[in-house]
Design a protein around this nucleic acid. Structure first.
Lengths: 142, 142
DNA sequence: CTGTGTGCAAAGCTTTTGCACTACT
DNA sequence: AGTAGTGCAAAAGCTTTGCACACAG
């Protein structure tokens, strides 16, 4: 698979990425996207908030949350649910799954080629598939 | 597989179930377990809180949360993470996976025999498996 | 009587809402 | 000038903490 060109720190490229996802590129949104799109990564809302406001207080927490929800709705990023009230935002929107280390809190992608899910259950009546989330939980060898 | 005998509404049986899981059977804990163990089901903390306090206010919200965490730690129930800040507590602790209907919010078990997961990725170095969570998201046919 | 365990009010989080403001048309 | 979109303070909601009380040894 070709490397997705959306990863960048260039404000102008980010502006185009946002526009491609039907998101008006305001300065707050560019600041937030700039943190997320620096590379494929998993960040919590809190981490994004503090990275965005590293220099000065530029963007409020409410805006960070609302913007992340917007990005998720527009398929720019994905939510990954790991732990009761701990949500990660994943800049990689390709279908993929995760390792979660319960000791360290580290979240790690599972290489697509290594993961084979034969999920063949009949869906409930009159429903269509929207996604499959797999989290493999591990802990450190004691 | 034999039907798990832990499902019951009998206070005395519940007392024994709690003791088998190293949980002191106080009246609050029996009230909470009684709601969960009535049958295999998925309930949110809020639903459990209101069912427990249906008649009078018997158990505080803090105690409901702390008790649910205790039950999870002692493997009496399982947490299922579905949606940003929506945690279900599942009285079925057998390994199994879930359908989640995004339109209705309904959470449904996937029959073990219908679900075949060939998860063969190499675990991260020096870690051991603790669990695999699969959530298949569906929506109503439009 | 002492030490461990328990329940819950209050505190501390995380997330959403409602509204003043902005900026396109 | 009107209307849709935006950002954020304040509100709401969820979960944990810390401590007074209860209970077992």
């Amino acid at each position: 698979m070709k490397f997705d060109t959306k990863y960048t720190s260039d404000r102008n490229q980010i502006k185009h990425v946002l526009e491609n996802h039907n998101i008006r590129p305001t300065s707050q949104r560019i600041d937030i996207a700039r943190v997320l799109l620096a590379k494929p990564q998993h960040l919590s809302a809190e981490e994004i908030f503090s990275q965005v406001n590293k220099k000065d207080d530029l963007v409020s927490k409410a805006t960070v949350y609302n913007t992340l929800n917007l990005f998720v709705d527009e398929d720019l990023i994905k939510q990954v649910l790991i732990d009761s009230s701990y949500v990660f935002y994943d800049s990689n929107t390709e279908p993929h799954h995760h390792f979660y280390n319960e000791d360290t809190g580290l979240l790690q992608d599972i290489d697509d080629q290594e993961m084979l899910v034969r999920a063949t259950p009949k869906l409930p009546k009159d429903t269509v598939l929207t996604g499959i989330d797999v989290v493999i939980r591990v802990k450190n060898q004691s």
